Structure formats: C-alpha cells, structure tokens
Simulated assay, not measured.
Amino acid sequence: MEKENPSIEPGTPILGKDYSIIIDTKGPYFVYGHPRLQQEFIVPNADGEAWEYHPGETYNTEAEPVALCRCGHSRTKPYCDGAHTQADWDPRLTADRTPLLDSAETYDSQYLELSDNPDYCVHARFCMAKGTVWEQINNSDQKESYDLCVRETFHCPSGRLKIKNKKEDRFLEPSLKPSLSLIEDPQEECSGPLWVKGGIPIEDCECNAYEIRNRVTLCRCGASTNKPYCDGTHATIHFKDGLKPLKKHKE
C-alpha cells in the first residue's frame, strides 16, 4: 500500500526522518530507529505549580522495532508483553486527522498570537503557572509576560499550545531532538503519555499518516477517547506504569 504524504505542522524545526512509529491498530506502538527513551518527571516550583521536567530512567531501544505498550495492561511496561490481546480496552484509532492548528482557537496580542487546541490537552499544567498563559498573553508587551508565554507553551508536551511571533510571522518551537519520553506526574499520582519529540513520523499499520509535529503525546494508559493521542484520561483514572520513581536530588 502506498504511503500518504503527511502534513507537517508549521514551526516544526526538524524532521526525525531516521525514526518512525507505526501503530498496530489492535496492539502496541512499533518504534523504529532506536530513539532515546527516558522518563521525564513533572516537577513543581516552590509555589506548587508545574514548572520543569526532571529526567529519570533510560530504557533500551536497541531492538528493531521496539514494541511499546499502549493498552496500559502490560506487566513489562514500557514494553508490550502481548497483554492487549486479553485486556478489556478499546484499541480504535478515533482521532481526527485534521491538522491541529486548523481547529485551534487563537488569542491575539500586540506581539504574540497564542493557538490553543484543547482536544490535545494532557493536563501537564505548565500553562497554569504564574497566573495562566491566557492571562500572560494580554501583557506580552512586557518582557516577563512575553518570556512566560514562550516558556509555558514550550513546556506543553502535546503541542496543544503554540506561540507565534507576530513581528517575525513565525511559530516559535523548542529545539527538540528526535526522542521519546515517558511522562510521570508524581504531584497528581499518575503516569502520563508517551511524549514523541522532534518530528518523528507516526502512522498506523495501514500506512495512514498523522500530521508530523515537533511535540506529540500518545496515549499509553489505553483509556483515551482520542487515540492515538492522549486526552488526559490517565489523570482521571490515576494510571500508574509501575516504573521507577524520581530519585531525590541533593540541594
């Protein structure tokens, strides 16, 4: 079957062409190219607001491909152990393939334009620090608010939030190397999505391609209603992957 020519989201700075993810429509994510796979923990600031990511354990991706669990039931997470064949879950890929920005709301200011597509929200909460990004956008003529808007959108793992520099007429994106992260959220006592970075192409096993984006979050609890994307359900069901907790850092 001939592959589709996928759309590429504006602002995607690099394309991870040496990597790919193929989604088994009834099973795991098959990852090709040996990208780095590491835990990333959402860590709060002194005010208890989600503020930064701390790295955790790194996992082996030497196999070709690596099969990663997406049903949430594997006993060898993050890897697939075949549990999807017996688990009670809905594997259907129901997400709209319309480019994310096509159905995003926009919030305008003098210097910045914020695009927001809440269908991709994973409840990482970086957008809620220091007020909210929607409040800060109104004050983006001030350097502190401008910098906060950029920072908070850059930390949004799913790309739900994107910032455009109006003077330069271009979207601003963090420079992310093609890699994968397992998001962990100790504050909410749950494990989050598979964070795909750096423009890694994603398609299903029937060669149907998804939009290539710099920041993508894929469901790994098995309960999202917007598969393959995460819709934040992991926080509602308190999904836990059972992987190693964050090591305490010395002050």
Rank of each mutant, 00 (worst) to 15 (best):
P228L: 15
C156D: 10
S145A: 15
D241P: 00
L93K: 01
T217G: 07
A50D: 04
G11L: 13
G131N: 03
I23L: 06
N45E: 08
C190P: 01
G192K: 06
M1W: 10
N165Q: 09
H34F: 07
Y53K: 02
A223Q: 13
E168S: 05
Q110G: 14
G82H: 07
H84E: 05
P44C: 03
K197V: 07
I22E: 12
G242I: 09
I21A: 08
P178T: 10
L246N: 00
R213Q: 14
P78F: 15
N208G: 00
A46I: 13
H238E: 12
Y19K: 10
W51K: 01
I183C: 04
Y59G: 01
A223V: 09
E57W: 03
L15K: 08
L172Q: 10
Q38Y: 01
M128N: 11
S158W: 14
I14K: 02
K26I: 10
G192W: 10
N5E: 14
L101V: 11
T25F: 02
D241Y: 04
H249I: 14
C221E: 07
E9I: 13
P91Y: 15
Y53W: 15
A67M: 08
K143R: 14
Y107V: 08
K130Y: 15
S74D: 03
A67T: 07
L243Q: 04
T106S: 10
Y210Q: 07
G11Y: 14
S20Q: 08
Y29I: 05
I14P: 00
C149D: 05
L112R: 01
Y79K: 01
T106V: 10
G242F: 10
I163F: 04
H54V: 12
G56R: 00
N117I: 09
E135P: 00
T236R: 03
P55H: 10
G27V: 11
S145R: 01
I8W: 03
S191F: 05
T153G: 06
R97A: 05
A129V: 13
I183K: 00
T25C: 08
D119F: 12
T61K: 00
C127I: 08
T61R: 01
L218G: 08
A235W: 11
A95Y: 03
W134G: 03
P186R: 07
R70G: 06
S145I: 09
R215Y: 07
D90V: 07
Y59S: 05
C69R: 06
I163V: 15
H123N: 10
G222Q: 06
P99Y: 14
R75D: 12
K166M: 11
W51V: 04
C69E: 10
G56L: 09
T217R: 02
S175E: 15
